[in-house]
């Protein structure tokens, strides 16, 4: 026992202080080396291209009209004087409005429904997630069979219920109806993720808060509005931001369902047309930059308006 007591300081003395060790061996590079692969890929495949796109958006980069030359704000001037681009900006804002609002509302409703355990809940969640896993092009093709104006499922059902006498044209004629119909398809795709994000936030809300509210005489609606909703705001914020990113970048659904008609073209479709059909990469970069800045600004706005820190 005595021996042990005597040994302790000896052992301590034999181990040099950690600061001395570092000084002797130089800085510890291991953490840096471990993050290097990821950093290289992020820098090489995201930041460098983004930086190049930013720079090139101020250059005239036209494959059919070389060489590359500095153009100042000319690409942006041409963008904002192009009727097709302006129309697609309006369309995209409508996609965002419909998409973010609907997917968030549906996400909250579905998350509330799935909040408590019940038989078949996990199967229901698995089925609900399916549309999220499907590629947009596939969804567009599937929904073509529903919206089709000559032989679509919806017209067929409405007709057999004697609700309509002639088949309706849902896509292509009326801009608002076209955008709503297309956006419904995207909402079908993005709502599962919104639901899961809000459901995760709901799971964190302590049950005793609801019990306390109930004891204080709160109705279920008042409990939801005054207790649940404020506490799941972080989850709702993330759900809204992901929906915003998806809807601002909508491409597959309008392209498959409505072609290039001005009633439904989105900003990403215009970026594709300008870059890969007109081969005007400078203007394409400029439009991508506009889209990126718009995404950042609206995302920040959502965070500012909706997000509130929550501590339990």
């Amino acid at each position: 026992m005595t021996g042990t007591t005597d040994l302790r300081p000896t052992v301590r003395d034999a181990t040099p202080p950690s600061s001395d060790r570092r000084r002797r061996r130089g800085p510890d590079l291991l953490p840096y080396l471990l993050v290097t692969p990821l950093a290289v890929f992020i820098i090489g495949l995201a930041l460098v291209p983004a930086g190049l796109a930013l720079v090139q958006s101020f250059y005239r980069v036209q494959e059919l009209n070389p060489p590359v030359r500095f153009a100042g704000l000319d690409n942006f001037r041409r963008l904002f004087s192009d009727d097709a681009v302006l129309a697609s900006m309006g369309n995209t804002m409508l996609y965002v409005l419909f998409g973010v609002a609907l997917s968030t509302l549906l996400g909250i409703v579905m998350a509330m429904t799935l909040r408590h355990p019940f038989r078949g809940r996990s199967v229901l969640i698995a089925i609900m997630v399916l549309p999220w896993a499907l590629p947009g092009v596939v969804e567009g093709i599937v929904w073509t069979g529903i919206w089709d104006s000559n032989s679509g499922l919806l017209n067929s059902v409405l007709s057999s219920l004697h609700l309509i006498s002639d088949y309706h044209v849902f896509l292509g004629n009326n801009r608002l109806l076209t955008i709503l119909a297309i956006e419904l398809v995207q909402v079908w795709q993005i709502t599962p993720l919104s639901t899961l994000l809000i459901l995760a936030a709901l799971q964190n809300v302590p049950g005793d808060l609801h019990e306390a509210a109930q004891l204080d005489g709160c109705s279920p609606w008042a409990s939801f509005r005054r207790v649940t909703l404020p506490l799941i705001r972080p989850g709702i914020t993330i759900a809204m931001v992901q929906a915003l990113i998806q809807t601002l970048n909508v491409f597959d659904q309008p392209y498959v369902l409505n072609g290039s008609a001005s009633t439904g073209t989105s900003l990403t479709m215009q970026t594709y047309f300008i870059s890969f059909q007109n081969l005007d990469f400078g203007e394409g970069y400029a439009l991508s930059l506009v889209l990126t800045i718009t995404t950042l600004v609206i995302s920040l706005g959502i965070v500012k308006l909706v997000y509130r820190p929550v501590e339990f």
Partner: peptide, 22 residues
């Protein structure tokens, strides 16, 4: 022409209208 053709592509029209006798 069917009014719904406002949003029908070439191959779609061939497959769902012409090939179906519509």
């Amino acid at each position: 022409v069917p009014p719904g053709n406002i949003n029908v592509s070439d191959s779609q029209g061939q497959q769902t209208l012409m090939a179906k006798g519509q």
